[in-house]
Design a binder for these strands. Structure first.
Lengths: 153, 153
DNA sequence: TATTGTTATACTCTATAACTATA
DNA sequence: TATAGTTATAGAGTATAACAATA
């Protein structure tokens, strides 16, 4: 799906930057999410597992902030991870309003297995590319984000 | 939501390019889609209207290819556009399997009204930016897409 | 009173596969 | 047999609001 596709940019003579960004994202999104789904995880589930893999546990609030998933959606996603035995909720001792989510052993193992394959899959695209060139591309994405963030205020 | 968020890239030491890409997209997606929804259109609906605005009519197949929306999803989206009086389906004379979708007068007027505002909204982000800098950023995005597309085969 | 998270509502979109009609 | 589009299903996302428990 697209927020803005190439047609739009042509029609409206929008900055070509937006068209290129959109197309780049679509290409990546397809490349990444199809692979993930074949491993049995949705992109959202993988994003949550990724955030949890780096730490012991996270509150739903933090998880929501880090993944960009709204708290309402997060409830359902964590529900399904729990149902599948990959994550669990524990009420925080410090603040008993807060529910800490952490990975089960199975969740951690699943993440590591999937992530390794996924990493290799993504790496394919960048093999043999000049490091300096990647740095330039990164800088472009960073600058684009800054422009958008600045306009968002 | 994110397919891959910054946390993942840190965890896996994925090419930083992907992390920057993801964050840039999220920033843009929020900036663009919130504005669209406030105008009463979903991003998918706007994408379809955009594709149709440039031409007389498109078959569902072509529409699907141009927007990147799968044909299954497209059925529902066109249904809702029809319900809202923005688009209509006509069975093709040449190939009666094919349904041509076109904008109603109201659909065209709605698109033009929304698109103009949306264009202005997006333009805000790029005002005063050096044209040459934008060209460089675009080239980077294009290169990124080529790398992904090449790996997709 | 403010915040955390859940629940509920209603709609939209995605992917996928099975199906119908037509070619 | 292949293609165009629809239908069905399950999962996920949005926005919003109301709510309980806790701070």
């Amino acid at each position: 799906m697209s927020t803005l596709d190439a047609t739009l940019c042509t029609t409206l003579r929008l900055p070509a930057t937006i068209g290129e960004m959109t197309q780049a994202w679509h290409a990546f999104e397809q490349f990444a999410s199809r692979h993930l789904r074949r491993q049995g995880l949705t992109p959202a589930q993988f994003a949550v597992l990724s955030a949890l893999a780096a730490v012991t546990a996270l509150s739903c609030k933090t998880l929501s902030e880090q993944t960009g998933i709204t708290k309402g959606s997060l409830t359902g996603i964590v529900d399904r991870l729990e149902q599948n035995g990959l994550a669990q909720r524990v009420v925080s001792r410090e603040d008993r309003r807060s529910h800490l989510v952490n990975l089960t052993d199975e969740g951690r193992a699943t993440f590591e297995r999937v992530a390794e394959k996924h990493f290799a899959h993504l790496q394919q695209a960048f093999e043999g590319v000049d490091r300096e060139e990647l740095t330039d591309i990164e800088a472009g994405f960073r600058r684009f984000r800054q422009l958008i963030n600045h306009a968002s205020r």
